[in-house]
Design a protein around this nucleic acid. Structure first.
Length: 96
DNA sequence: TTTTTGACTTCTG
DNA sequence: CCAGAAGCCAAAA
């Protein structure tokens, strides 16, 4: 496991239910160097069941294309997070 | 070794 | 609000 992934896991583990974070913010908090690193590393997470990868959305507050979008949608819905008619998640879910 | 490729972001128009 | 361009960086080709 790379040190970057280790740091990402630490940050991700502290993200509570009902709270969202963007790839960019995650990259900054875990000192990954670029938002793309968040995306890259999320693709090879160890504990897919425990770590809330589904609470990461893009800067437009939408779910990015990747292959598990449906699952992401569903998991967020289970936490009470629903997107508006344009697929955007509420700004309130991003506050500390 | 160089180029391409992404679960991306930010700035401009 | 949408589209394009530039910036980003590790991995794969």
């Amino acid at each position: 496991m790379s040190p970057g992934l280790a740091r990402l896991v630490e940050v991700l583990a502290l993200l509570p239910p009902g709270r969202l974070m963007t790839y960019g913010e995650l990259a900054r908090q875990a000192a990954l160097g670029s938002p793309r690193m968040s995306a890259r590393l999320l693709g090879q997470l160890p504990d897919r069941e425990r770590l809330p990868w589904w609470r990461i959305v893009n800067a437009q507050r939408r779910i990015s294309e990747h292959g598990a979008q449906d699952e992401q949608h569903q998991r967020l819905a289970e936490e009470g997070l629903l997107p508006d008619t344009r697929g955007r998640y509420p700004i309130s879910a991003f506050w500390p």
